[in-house]
Design a protein around this nucleic acid. Structure first.
Length: 231
DNA sequence: GCGACAG
DNA sequence: ATCTTGTCGC
């Protein structure tokens, strides 16, 4: 398990953080379909916190996309680099997540984040940010609708309904509410970087053969908690 | 101005 | 995210 320091040039204020997002947003690539679902490797990343001790632990778990078997995993720990502010989650998680990805013995392939990508106040959520910094295809699968609205998808697994930005003049689809288990609360999928929304949803379905959340995030969640507890 | 708000 | 017991159901 590697230890990381927060970058010296990391934003300190919310204003600085928002400026970073505005500066990087243009680098997001949205015209690539991304790797075909069920092929190659998919890596889940997640983070656990201990604000008391100012410690954060991140995990990256690589799965074989076809079998969902664990191929590799790595963890990293560091200091909390930013407070939790809705819309600025990436600044809290990215330094440690990058370290965990760097510690992997093999290429990550597609990265699945616990949060949003394009579905973000400034269209640059965690999955897009991580994708731009690494160059890797990335998607976001969140457990809550954040500030977006959506109709309830039909009960069958695989049903979807558009995730829409509020207020906005036109119905801008920033992601999709996707039912991964029959009649169970949907997950919220959005594009991060170099992956189409259709493909992001297909990947998410391929990663949820048994539970609501993708195997990638379930595995990464369990690992970063274990890493945090081991400190 | 007030409330809502990924993790 | 995190604090936390039992409990209902496949």
């Amino acid at each position: 398990m590697t230890t990381v320091r927060t970058p010296a040039d990391w934003p300190v204020t919310e204003e600085e953080a928002r400026a970073v997002q505005d500066g990087l947003r243009a680098r997001v690539v949205l015209d690539e379909p991304g790797p075909p679902p069920g092929t190659g490797r998919i890596t889940g990343v997640d983070v656990a916190y201990d604000d008391e001790r100012d410690v954060v632990a991140a995990a990256a778990v690589v799965l074989d996309a076809a079998t969902l078997d664990v191929v590799a995993e790595a963890t990293a720990v560091g200091r909390v680099s930013f407070p939790y502010v809705p819309g600025l989650l990436a600044f809290r998680e990215i330094p440690t997540v990058l370290a965990a990805l760097d510690a992997l013995p093999c290429p990550p392939g597609l990265v699945v984040c616990d949060g949003y990508g394009l579905a973000h106040p400034r269209r640059f959520g965690l999955a897009s940010h991580l994708g731009v910094l690494t160059g890797l295809p990335a998607i976001g699968v969140a457990k809550n609708p954040f500030t977006f609205t959506h109709d309830e998808p039909d009960a069958p697994r695989g049903s979807t309904s558009p995730l829409l930005a509020k207020g906005g003049d036109g119905r801008e689809e920033v992601g999709r509410a996707l039912r991964t288990r029959h009649a169970v609360k949907p997950v919220f999928v959005s594009v991060g970087h170099r992956v189409s929304l259709d493909n992001a949803c297909a990947h998410t379905l391929a990663l949820t053969p048994a539970y609501r959340l993708p195997e990638t995030t379930r595995r990464a969640d369990a690992l970063c908690r274990r890493a945090l507890g081991a400190i």
